[in-house]
Nucleic acid binder design. Structure first.
Lengths: 267, 267
DNA sequence: CAGATTTTGTGGAATATGCCACAGAATTTG
DNA sequence: CAAATTCTGTGGCATATTCCACAAAATCTG
């Protein structure tokens, strides 16, 4: 077994160090600097990318966007491409002027960034800091943040204050995330998060679940709501088997955001 | 002369938008997505690079390392040593079990980090994201975040929702920041921020202003409150002249946090 | 409307990178 | 010490990107 301190580790540490200085590094430059072949550097970068420590680019690597909580940031890295696809597909569902409720979470935060980037004027109500933070242009967006108890792990607020605050509003459209999706509906680990999601769903005309396919058929502690409550689901892959059947049975419109393209299947 | 709204501008905006989502973009992908030639995209990227908005890479571009709001991040950097001194001096005023209200701002955020590092169990009520984010250990701290309209520049929430929420609580101690401090009292640029500070002061038994000496005698748009409202001031230098007189006249205890040591002068 | 200016597309040669497979080197393991 | 495993370098070929120069197209100006 290789101890975690060989030439390789030293090299990879240096790559990360370099990345802290410059936004991007090039494979060729690193190879020269480190006195190894470009292939070796490429392999290092591949490995670091798998660990989510850097992002591979054509000809080099780039560092992660820092500034977020590590745990939260890790989850962000997990499946960037998938989440981007979902985010962009979901943005298409928002109309200018809508009042949009957005749940706290990494998938929804990504969606918020996409929505902000599109510069569609909307009013946002959210319990997530990362979601609120995405809307930097206060001239274009009105962002209302819920009160509640701050949970660092989720980078958002939860609790009875949050829910009773949400009750006071009515939204055109609500976007929520979940830890799993089963025949019975979306499932969640956190009970408090569940309550917030339920409240948002109850206060919105259109109720959309954003979820990546890796969570299909995953059962967690609590069911957020029956499938029939949802009006749409945006995911990066088409569900199969009973899940697909139940979706169409319950009149849930499915939108697939698959790396760039966007398909929609209405039941 | 070209008006600032051609196809070109739209394209470049989209490139930046894309970069907000993904850490890197590739020229080829953008060309396809935008329906233009790779040469055009390259020229756009060159131009954006000259403007310092993106970094050119081999085969594409990468965004500037962001994460926080540039202004906020800069302000954080401005005077770390001074603020640390203030923060540590202020932490000494907090007793275990206190309910603490903390205003949004860079000085108060620093204070929050110091307080969190001390691991004194407290309940925190704040309107600042950076303040809330400092308390990562949810087992030690209970952090309540106010509702309100999110202002990106301040990384916090403001407005009537914020104030009426605060009214519902009573705190042992409140910490606020300010843009200036004059004989008449602390002054602020933002009216909305003023209202929040005033409400916090009204709901707390001990009312403490955290401010660095560079803001002494600085008069801004609005006066937050008369000096007599404050119970304590923590700064990194002893005020002089009329300001010092008025402070003792109004029974305000002054605490000096000067790079490590902490002195207190009671009137 | 015509001329001037800016912007964009095209083609090709030079250069860089990616990827693959295999062999040699280094290290670990028994 | 020898076998096994892991790590690294090399060579070649396919693919991508850069850079340049020039022409076509779009846009602005008077």
């Amino acid at each position: 077994m290789m101890l975690p301190d060989g030439k390789k580790t030293a090299r990879q540490r240096l790559i990360i160090a370099e990345l802290a200085l410059s936004p991007t590094v090039r494979t060729s430059a690193l190879a020269q600097q480190l006195g190894v072949s470009t292939e070796t550097v490429r392999r290092d970068i591949e490995e670091l990318t798998r660990q989510g420590l850097v992002s591979r680019t054509y000809g080099g690597a780039t560092g992660r966007q820092v500034g977020m909580q590590p745990e939260f940031a890790n989850r962000e890295e997990e499946a960037v491409a998938e989440r981007d696809a979902i985010a962009w597909a979901a943005v298409a569902l928002v109309r200018p002027g809508d009042v949009v409720m957005i749940d706290s979470g990494s998938t929804t935060a990504r969606f918020a960034q996409a929505l902000a980037a599109r510069e569609v004027p909307v009013t946002v109500i959210t319990n997530g800091f990362a979601v609120a933070g995405a809307f930097r242009r206060n001239d274009l967006f009105r962002v209302m943040v819920c009160p509640g108890q701050f949970i660092a792990r989720e980078q958002g607020v939860y609790g009875s204050e949050t829910c009773s605050f949400l009750q006071r509003f009515f939204a055109d459209i609500a976007f929520i995330g979940a830890s799993g999706l089963t025949d019975e509906g979306p499932t969640e680990v956190e009970t408090e998060a569940c309550a917030v999601k339920r409240t948002m769903l109850a206060r919105a005309e259109r109720r959309i679940l954003l979820i990546d396919f890796s969570k299909f058929h995953r059962r967690h502690f609590e069911v957020v709501c029956p499938l029939s409550v949802l009006s749409d689901i945006v995911a990066d892959r088409v569900p199969e088997g009973t899940l697909a059947e139940r979706l169409s049975e319950n009149g849930v419109t499915f939108h697939a955001g698959i790396s760039g393209e966007t398909a929609t299947s209405t039941p």
